[in-house]
Simulated scan of single mutants.
Amino acid sequence: MQMKPALGIAEANRILDAARDEAQRNGWAVAIAVVDDGGHPIALARLDGTAPVSAYMAQEKARTAALGRRESKLYEDMINGGRTAFLSAPLTATLEGGVPVIVDGQVAGAVGVSGVKSDQDAQIAKAGVRSIAA
């Protein structure tokens, strides 16, 4: 039987706290989602002033990163690079801002952020990931 790391609520809360700190330090209103390795929600925070659609987008970015086992930015780059057939993939948020949580070489889940520029979303997500993957 194979064993792999899994995110629990304690890790999800630590990720949310670190990501929230990064967003607030920069004055960014965002939604932050943490999902398990199957893309299922564990935790969600929508900071004051964040557009409602950002909560949906954050979850989908996280789901894309978890299921794809890579940052969602790679899909955005692939499509922008001309591989438009990838638009038919069963992922709904192929935009930067979804980052997998990798522990001991295994994807344990992912973080998705939405609400500001995509590279800023990714910056916040990576701050969350660093809180447990360091």
Score class of each variant (00 low, 15 high):
N13C: 10
N13I: 05
N13Q: 13
R14P: 02
R14I: 01
I15H: 02
I15N: 01
I15C: 02
L16N: 00
L16I: 09
D17K: 14
A19H: 06
A19T: 05
R20E: 12
D21W: 11
E22C: 14
E22T: 09
A23Y: 13
R25G: 12
R25M: 13
R25E: 15
R25S: 15
R25P: 02
N26F: 04
N26C: 10
W28V: 06
W28H: 12
A29Y: 01
V30P: 04
A31N: 12
A31S: 15
A31R: 03
A31G: 15
I32F: 03
A33W: 01
V34F: 08
V35N: 11
D36A: 06
D36H: 10
D37T: 06
D37R: 13
D37G: 11
G38R: 05
G38P: 09
G39S: 08
G39L: 03
G39T: 02
H40D: 10
H40F: 08
P41K: 09
I42N: 06
I42L: 15
I42F: 02
A43T: 10
L44G: 07
L44F: 11
L44K: 04
R46V: 13
L47W: 05
L47A: 10
G49H: 05
G49N: 11
T50G: 04
T50Y: 04
T50W: 05
T50K: 03
A51K: 14
A51P: 07
P52F: 10
V53Y: 07
V53F: 11
S54P: 02
A55R: 01
A55V: 00
Y56L: 13
M57K: 15
M57E: 15
A58K: 02
A58D: 03
E60S: 10
K61S: 10
K61M: 04
K61N: 03
R63F: 05
R63T: 06
R63V: 05
R63D: 00
T64H: 08
T64G: 12
T64Y: 09
A65F: 11
A65G: 11
A66Q: 00
L67S: 00
L67M: 03
L67W: 00
